[in-house]
Design a protein around this nucleic acid. Structure first.
Lengths: 110, 110
DNA sequence: AGTTCATGTTAGCCATTACTTACCGTAACC
DNA sequence: GGTTACGGTAAGTAATGGCTAACATGAACT
């Protein structure tokens, strides 16, 4: 499912996120991905399955190899969800500045 | 730790994400947050602790209550990390379009 | 001081999960 | 056909994590 929940869940694990980052850099077969990681090849295969179900990567057979690449639509919902709170974060930042200014005024005993 | 790893890990859990969304909407004490959720108050308190250590929320005492609000700096690293792969996703999308066009035309390659 | 309200903390339980080893299927070689 | 390369799947295990219940802390109020 390519919703934001599964995407967030998939990217939470450091190893799986490393797999995703590797695939995002450039498409690669499973073996190559596993070579650059401290886990076994089946582990990478399992991570790729999760990433695929989360809509973050795509795969296609190429002979005996299976090439994984980033799924363009995967990061969309996640980014949209994040931006939803970007405004709230900025508002909070503005409120912080205001409160800080008030504090400075209160604390101006020499 | 206010890095992107802990932020991603904190937001992965649906309940904890609901807590974060509630806090982001408007600052509130723990009891009020727990009222709108299907888990106990201690559970909310634990989630808030994780969110706080991830740099996603801030708290300040207000009498016996403890008001939690969003931490403006929390989403920054996460958003930055996400944008790092936004370009790769767009590139992949462009590659998809190109491949599709090639398929449609059944043309030989560039 | 004693009581009540609001919250943090601990202990323990249960479900989930990330990992490895072993195995099976498939595709390209000889 | 046999063998080798590549990758997905199953089973079993150790570790993690979220939850509740019980306890501890501290502030406000009478």
């Amino acid at each position: 499912m390519a919703n934001m929940n599964s995407a967030l869940l998939a990217l939470a694990d450091p190893t799986r996120r490393a797999v995703f980052e590797r695939v995002a850099r450039s498409p690669a077969p499973v073996g190559d991905i596993a070579k650059g990681l401290p886990v076994s090849r089946p582990a990478v295969s399992q991570h790729l399955k999760v990433l695929k179900e989360a809509g973050l990567v795509l795969d296609h057979a190429e002979g005996a190899r299976r090439i994984y690449r980033i799924d363009p639509r995967g990061l969309g919902p996640l980014r949209a969800w994040l931006d939803q709170f970007w405004g709230a974060a900025l508002d909070a930042f503005a409120a912080d500045l205001e409160a800080q200014a008030k504090d400075d005024k209160d604390d101006d005993h020499d």
